[in-house]
Design a binder for these strands. Structure first.
Lengths: 262, 262
DNA sequence: AAATTTCATTATGTAAGACGAATTGAATGG
DNA sequence: CCATTCAATTCGTCTTACATAATGAAATTT
């Protein structure tokens, strides 16, 4: 089966090899390619990937480079190398679906609507709770970070890269203010959603409503140490994003808005 | 500075080298050791780890092994190798605090009470919401998995390894029934907490109350497709665990129980 | 004939040595 | 004093070789 004729060349093989341009290290490129392929169901759980030497030949890179790529995927729970058997794709339940890399690979492989809905569902559960905690635990530094982000958002809108980053920073500062490192680890996924929804709006030219007021309301509730208000305002904010992005008034199966009226 | 005298020997260096016994691969051992050290604050964010060759000499292993270990840590966001600068420990906010390995390293480095509190705080936010979703999305397969787990729990109690596993399985089945893959990725952390609290109880010989009734209540609410009831019952269940493990009636800063009476 | 043991195969795990490339920092020159 | 150049350091990569363990088939024994 294996054609032994094809000698490994200088890492520049136009059609199936990896680019040697400014795309990062080789092992990173391969990890990315494999990750995207696995998430895109080109390799299914339980299947065995080609052996390291095969891959090295296929992509015209060295075996250590292949191994490091596999090591990366293994660290994210996606593959499991074992002697003599080869490297096996693990069951989906073991994958770190919230890892920033894995998330980006998911977006790259299939911009699935389910993924977006799942992420917003998660935000709708987490962020209001985080806001509630933040209202009670925030320090001056957190307030300043959030306030600064709001200022930039107001000045730059979401059309500029810095404005978009400010939006992300706002949510990051809030998660940090919640004072729970483990909860804070979910910020990466939230940031991805924020970026996604904003980029979508820009791409489809739906400037829509000004995002600052809703953020400001959250900020003030946290400033005033009002947990309930913070919770409600954040829920409102996320629901707005859902409405804009998914054209849904609410995510099914999640409880409707709390008692308060808009 | 470098002492060139010490030649790298056959991977068995009693005092500072890595064991060559049945502790897994060398790169895994090193990743583990470095991970624990970093989480234990022996290396602080911003600091540069020893160069790859230095480490290879120190632990009497090969450079590829060192590199694979570093690759593992990099995949979890804990270090960032760069040419000429060396491998730098990243800021804590970038670490995947919910990664199973990272969690286990945290437990190994410092059984911090804050960590336990953080994890239960997260459970108290996530699991009731997940139960609510599960009540609306569960399939027969999910019900069977949960029911089976309950049966085993009732038979084995939490004193046996299988009984403990059944408890974990119950929560895993519930998270799966919630029908959100991203949310489901948090199950690893929840499982760690469940295991932790049960092992703690066994170690301190607090058999305490029978855990089955509370679980059964959650199960029945999900069986009956009653989201509110499921939410409440799960919140009650987690609160019980908090009370047993942390001797606290409630986690501060989180809202008190809903309207219902026990 | 069935079960056990043995052994060769195969893929990952590890080692050693060399070179490439990029970035940092110091030395040099304007 | 600033800019440029250059050299040293460290990660990134390649190559080759051997070790190790697990698999499956063959051979032996019961």
């Amino acid at each position: 089966m294996n054609k032994p004729g094809r000698k490994r060349l200088a890492a520049v093989s136009k059609h199936d090899g990896l680019e040697s341009g400014k795309l990062g290290e080789l092992h990173t490129q391969l990890a990315q390619k494999l990750g995207i392929d696995i998430l895109g169901r080109k390799w299914l759980p339980g299947e065995i990937l080609p052996s390291e030497v095969d891959m090295a030949n296929t992509y015209a890179i060295s075996r250590p480079a292949v191994r490091e790529a596999i090591r990366t995927l293994a660290a994210k729970g996606m593959v499991e190398p074992r002697r003599r058997r080869g490297t096996c794709v693990t069951e989906r339940a073991k994958w770190n679906m919230l890892d920033p890399d894995v998330l980006s690979w998911m977006f790259a492989s299939k911009p699935d609507e389910t993924l977006v809905k799942n992420l917003f569902e998660m935000r709708l559960i987490l962020e209001p709770a985080a806001a509630r905690l933040a209202a009670q635990r925030r320090t001056e530094a957190h307030l300043k970070a959030m306030s600064d982000a709001l200022t930039i958002m107001g000045r730059e809108t979401l059309l500029t890269e810095t404005g978009l980053q400010a939006d992300i920073d706002f949510h990051a500062a809030l998660m940090s203010a919640a004072g729970n490192e483990q909860l804070g680890a979910l910020n990466a996924s939230i940031g991805a959603t924020v970026a996604l929804s904003n980029r979508y709006k820009i791409a489809h030219d739906i400037l829509g409503r000004d995002p600052v007021p809703a953020h400001m309301a959250v900020y003030e509730a946290i400033l005033n140490r009002d947990p309930e208000e913070a919770h409600w305002c954040m829920q409102y904010l996320v629901r707005l994003a859902v409405k804009d992005l998914l054209h849904m008034d609410a995510i099914e199966d999640l409880p409707p808005e709390a008692g308060k009226e808009a």
